[in-house]
Design a protein around this nucleic acid. Structure first.
Lengths: 161, 161
DNA sequence: TATGAAAGAACCTGGCC
DNA sequence: GGCCAGGTTCTTTCATA
């Protein structure tokens, strides 16, 4: 589907604050409240906006430790096998198959280092996993929500602040 | 600060749908609407909830490609140096210093592989960067918002679905 | 097809118990 | 924590370009 500048501006406003009123957003983008609502409804129907979520400080919930784990799998392991296996763990907050030496990269949140160890141990026990290689996060430097920036339609190289 | 089960339940509801009414959440957790509002206000003041954000499909905005980049830095590079350098790029959606061979791990979103290459090239040009090692994401398997799961206070090993 | 205006319904907010 | 009243916002409908 097509997104014009108005749609992009509205999305940026909602990523910034999902509870801003339609009138407020309308004032920012130069539209009436009802026009904004119609566009937001459409953006949700078309799937550009998938929902609204509270931003949470993981530490406040007890997730004080995070780690990235590279997964090395057997030759004919399917991505869906990996997906099924890791989706069982609520500690796995992100996972993707990747190019390079490893087959997949996992992002794990846990309560402490011992907890990370237990989760990795259980994942390593999966039949298709040959070995793992983990990196514990020492300090988080950047953490932007998806949609915080918009690609520049012209060059595809820069984006909005 | 202390979070009781009610607070955790409310947070989970707001991560699921930040626009649910206080009455709806109250019905889920067994509280009146105003009691829920008071708790939400408090959760925001104490920093457990940092805001409300629209969930966006990165693809819909044009972010069709993502990559993870390991950064190998000179001996006495400070985390703050890395933070300052990578924060300039809106394409860097996450960054952290890590244990292991690499000094830092970056998560990059871009419009295409060529765009990823350009960003890495510019980051590699930073004075403190010795070398980089990148993995392009082939397919995303899991992507949970922070707070989608809650650590089990008793064991610290499991979490809610 | 998309917009702005308006009216009733729903919701939020703050004070009180 | 619950209840209630006043103010705000949402939602829908209608007319218009």
């Amino acid at each position: 589907m097509e997104l014009d500048q108005l749609d992009r501006h509205i999305i940026a406003a909602l990523v910034e604050d999902a509870r801003a009123t339609y009138a407020e957003i309308g004032h920012q983008v130069g539209l009436s409240a009802s026009a904004v609502k119609r566009r937001v409804d459409r953006l949700r129907e078309t799937g550009a906006i998938t929902g609204f979520s509270a931003r949470v400080a993981p530490r406040a919930l007890g997730w004080t430790t995070e780690a990235y784990v590279e997964l090395f799998c057997q030759g004919k392991t399917k991505p869906s096998d990996i997906a099924l296996a890791v989706a069982k763990f609520p500690e796995v907050v992100a996972a993707a198959t990747v190019t390079g030496e490893a087959d997949a990269l996992l992002h794990i949140r846990a309560t402490d280092v011992r907890h990370v160890e237990r989760v990795i141990e259980r994942i390593a026990a999966e039949s298709f996993v040959v070995r793992t290689k983990s990196s514990i996060v020492l300090s988080r430097l950047v953490d932007l929500p998806p949609g915080a920036a918009l690609p520049d339609a012209r060059t595809g190289s820069r984006a909005l602040p």
